[in-house]
Design a protein around this nucleic acid. Structure first.
Length: 421
RNA sequence: GAGGGAGUAGCUCAGUUGGUUAGAGCGUCUGGUUGUGGCCCAGAAGGCCGGGGGUUCAAAUCCCCUUUCUCUCCCCA
């Protein structure tokens, strides 16, 4: 027996039809918002991620699939999309071609985590990146895009939380302050918070342990450390989102797991997901491009988990069971008819119909049963009489009606009349 | 990395205090007479009871190990 690798998943046709629908809706909205598709490699040199995401983050420190190339260089399966997009932006000198870049991408991402509901080792993200604008308009656009997508798909129980995580001026001061605040309170904190205190103090803010929460309640808040420019930026973002008739809450404890975020951070959760409730997240990353060796170019972006989107979509109520279907199925009585049937099949397909044919000249009833199972709208029946006269028998399997004596042209027009695309 | 739950037919699951050839529903295949699907009826195929070891006269059932899936924590999308 061969098994799929732990945390990977086969998407069979019954499932891929849902993916296609969602991808189609997403593409429509992208064109609506003027985002253009980029397709990037699944592997990058490891330092693309370590430098941008942050050495101390969980993703980099314990979740990356890295290996040595034959030349001895360290290569990593991408754990997220932004780092590669920024690498590509800088490498292709896109900043010289356009003032503002609006990209979107789809694709598999890889993280070596323990799989559970809504979390796999190979998972798929859709993301957008808006590069080249420091304006709060850009932040608002990215956030609004995500919410509008969920509205378009009919998702319910979706909540938007936003926060400002500061920038290179305010964050160090804030972190310094947090350290002092917690320094004499470490004994009352959970074991993990003690580790976070040393490694990534901001993560302490969203600890769920109640004793930690009590201590956190009196902890200094990031907003008191924001400089006036950052404050103004955040206020403008907050004033723009309601213009799209979108509700949100400000969550002072919202921090993100990737180090590159500055100023605006947001997260969208769904009540339909269980433990892993974040369906999309993102924020501003004004210093990331600079760290790839370019001038300081500001940017905002977001990513959403496709598997999680599908879970939420399926439980939304707006979801109709997607079924594959066929326009016409070709049946024939005896083996000697197969050549003729085959040319009819080709003709039907040439007219753009989705058509299939029985593999064997078994009993016609059995062939019609096959047609029914394939969810075919029509079946054409070919035998001695039909071949002799060139007039076919067409059966409408949905209505249970049957037409006889139709020429091939009439067959095709009858089908085209009844199918809607 | 830590902790729960579960592996029996293609699918969903029964399986008594260990006791003969391991069951059901759905699905699949065949048939119910000549060239007509869905409903109905009849029949058939299909299982190393996840794998290995142990206890026993006897193991799907009890014990140990292992593996896979799943869920939770952590973290993230």
């Amino acid at each position: 027996m061969f098994n799929k690798v732990k945390g990977t998943h086969d998407i069979l046709p019954d499932e891929s039809i849902v993916w296609q629908k969602l991808e189609k809706e997403i593409r429509i909205l992208c064109s609506n918002y003027n985002f253009k598709e980029i397709r990037l490699p699944v592997i990058e040199y490891t330092n693309v991620f370590t430098r941008s995401i942050g050495e101390e983050t969980d993703i980099v420190s314990k979740e990356m699939y890295s290996f040595q190339s034959r030349g001895g260089k360290s290569i990593t399966l991408r754990p997220e999309g932004t780092a590669g997009a920024v690498r590509s932006y800088v490498e292709n000198k896109v900043h010289g071609q356009e003032a503002l870049t609006r990209w979107f991408y789809f694709g598999p991402m890889f993280r070596a985590e323990r799989p559970q509901k809504g979390r796999q080792r190979q998972f798929h993200q859709f993301g957008i990146e808006l590069i080249g604008s420091e304006s709060p308009v850009a932040d608002a656009e990215v956030i609004i895009f995500n919410i509008m997508l969920f509205k378009r798909l009919g998702l319910k129980n979706v909540k938007l939380k936003i926060n400002s995580v500061g920038d290179e001026n305010s964050r160090p001061k804030y972190i310094e302050n947090l350290k002092t605040y917690f320094s004499d309170k470490l004994d009352g904190l959970c074991e993990q918070c003690k580790v976070r205190y040393e490694k990534n103090i901001l993560r302490m803010l969203d600890c769920k342990v109640t004793t930690c929460q009590q201590i956190l309640n009196n902890a200094p808040a990031i907003e008191d450390f924001l400089d006036t420019a950052s404050k103004e930026h955040f206020e403008t973002v907050k004033s723009l989102i309601p213009q799209a008739e979108i509700e949100f809450t400000c969550d002072k404890r919202l921090v993100r797991g990737l180090d590159y975020y500055t100023r605006t951070a947001f997260e969208i959760t769904s009540g339909d997901l269980g433990g892993q409730d974040a369906i999309a997240g993102g924020g501003r990353y004004d210093n990331l491009i600079e760290s790839f060796g370019k001038n300081k170019i500001p940017a905002v972006g977001s990513a959403l988990g496709m598997e999680r989107l599908i879970i939420a979509y399926k439980s939304s109520g707006a979801y109709d069971e997607a079924v594959s279907s066929l326009d016409i199925y070709v049946t024939y009585f005896e083996h000697k008819h197969v050549k003729h049937a085959f040319s009819v099949l080709k003709n039907l397909r040439d007219h753009g119909l989705s058509a299939d044919i029985s593999q064997k000249a078994k009993k016609i009833g059995s062939q019609l049963k096959d047609a029914d199972r394939l969810n075919s709208h029509f079946a054409v029946i070919i035998g001695d009489d039909e071949i002799k006269t060139g007039k076919y028998t067409l059966k409408d399997l949905k209505k249970g009606e049957q037409f006889t004596g139709l020429s091939l042209e009439q067959v095709i027009t009858e089908i085209q009349k009844n199918i809607n695309r």
